[in-house]
Amino acid sequence: MVKVTLVAGARPNFMKIAPIIHAIKAQQLKNAPISYRLVHTGQHYDKKMSGDFFEQLNIPEPDVNLGGGGGTQAEQTAAIMVAFEKELMANRPDLVVVVGDVTSTLACSISAKKLVIDVAHVEGGIRSGDLSMPEEINRMVTDSITDHFFTTSEIANRSLRKLGFPESSIHFVGNTMIDTLMANMSRFQRPEGEIFENLKPKSYFVMTMHRPANVDQEEKLKEMIDAIMDGTKGLPVIFPVHPRTAKNLENLGISNPNLLMTDPLSYLEFNYLVKNAKGVITDSGGITEEASVMNVPCITLRDNTERAETIELGTNELIGTDPKKLAPYLEKIMNGEWKTYKGIPLWDGKTAERIVEKILEIYSNSK
């Protein structure tokens, strides 16, 4: 029996893990010798992470919550490492699967390797080149001790080869986030509330901003919002607001009748809005993937990205953090002159199946 421990530390991690669980269960129905244990490190306390969340996306409740949230990044890393080491000693697997680039990804990889347990990194090899981002450090350290990389793109494969990893450890499988997107697209739901009632498809924008470079300098934030509102020419801009950003906006007294601020939304609600939007303005990596596959124009307010394939083959453009650069891009969207989705290889909804087949191939044969 191949024993796998799946690790998730934050809400987006569960979107990446869910299809892997479904693929393991499908293999179990065929009597494949594989079992799994789902560990939530508790890195992010999120009130939306309730039973409803797991039910909505058909994700089983975690087998254990390590309660590793709170404190500085160093404190969090240490707390998760200590708790995960105990978990592994009590329930030793053949393989620990980590996803993405959060603190839990790094902490659990280190604990596993110290106990001589193999680590597989889903989304291994992606890089922004920006060491001021904690996520980049998490990716680099995790990849340096990973045994098997499940990669999302040829760009990630090239990056790993350049670092000297053997071809036998690099498995190009696609993107599990897109598995979740495709599995749930028919279930997207319009959010409830007055501001959503009169929205017409392709006649509004969706915006997300949370990175310090965009939201922590108040004058720059005001300039950015003003540039967005000018460029969207009176169309509604839906802005699910991170609490820190909400506070900064309040201090600045920013208000515009077309800027519709809302609490963070559920996965099915948020992606309903993205799918039907005229365009997306964001500083998040994951949203650029989903917008691309749904063929929705996407502007990224960052100086770098770890998801270059969304620019090469998707609908994403990286424009930096200077508000003055926004106008021509928004004009292109308004005029219907944006590039269309060309198709990213293996982003086809079957990534998790390939991951589980590869795990069985490697670990069934080695037992």
Rank of each mutant, 00 (worst) to 15 (best):
Y45N: 14
S266E: 10
F270P: 06
F165Y: 09
D216P: 03
R37H: 14
S144Y: 05
W347M: 13
D101S: 09
G174Y: 08
V99Q: 15
A83R: 04
T282P: 08
N138Q: 05
M207N: 06
E250F: 08
T142C: 09
I344L: 08
F196V: 00
I238H: 02
Y363L: 04
A291L: 05
N184Q: 11
S255Q: 14
S128V: 05
R187D: 09
V215P: 05
T282W: 05
G349I: 12
P134G: 12
L38W: 02
N276W: 07
A183Q: 11
G286M: 04
F150G: 03
M1H: 14
L221N: 14
G9R: 08
S255A: 07
D303K: 07
R187V: 02
P62I: 06
L29G: 05
K114M: 11
P201Y: 00
N175T: 05
N214R: 12
R11M: 15
R354K: 15
I287Q: 01
I126N: 15
D63P: 11
H171T: 14
I145P: 04
H44D: 10
A291Q: 07
R139S: 05
E123K: 03
E167F: 00
K113F: 08
C108N: 15
V99N: 13
P345K: 09
A90P: 00
L260I: 00
P257Q: 11
N184D: 09
S255Y: 01
E123S: 09
N304W: 03
L260F: 01
T152H: 02
P264A: 15
G42C: 15
N276S: 00
A183F: 03
Q189P: 04
I117L: 06
S266G: 15
A23Y: 08
N248I: 09
G71V: 11
D147R: 13
P264E: 12
S111L: 05
E135K: 08
N365C: 01
D118G: 04
S284A: 15
V237H: 04
E289N: 07
M1W: 06
M261A: 06
T41M: 04
N91I: 00
S255W: 10
M89A: 08
E75I: 00
P212I: 06
T152G: 07
I333W: 10
G320Y: 11
P297N: 07
A79W: 01
H148G: 01
T262D: 04
K202P: 03
A90W: 01
S203C: 05
M1A: 14
T321L: 02
V64G: 13
N157H: 01
M177I: 14
S203H: 15
R187H: 04
P134V: 06
R11S: 12
I333F: 14
R307H: 00
K222G: 14
E219T: 13
K247N: 03
E219N: 14
G42L: 04
E289R: 11
K339T: 14
E353A: 11
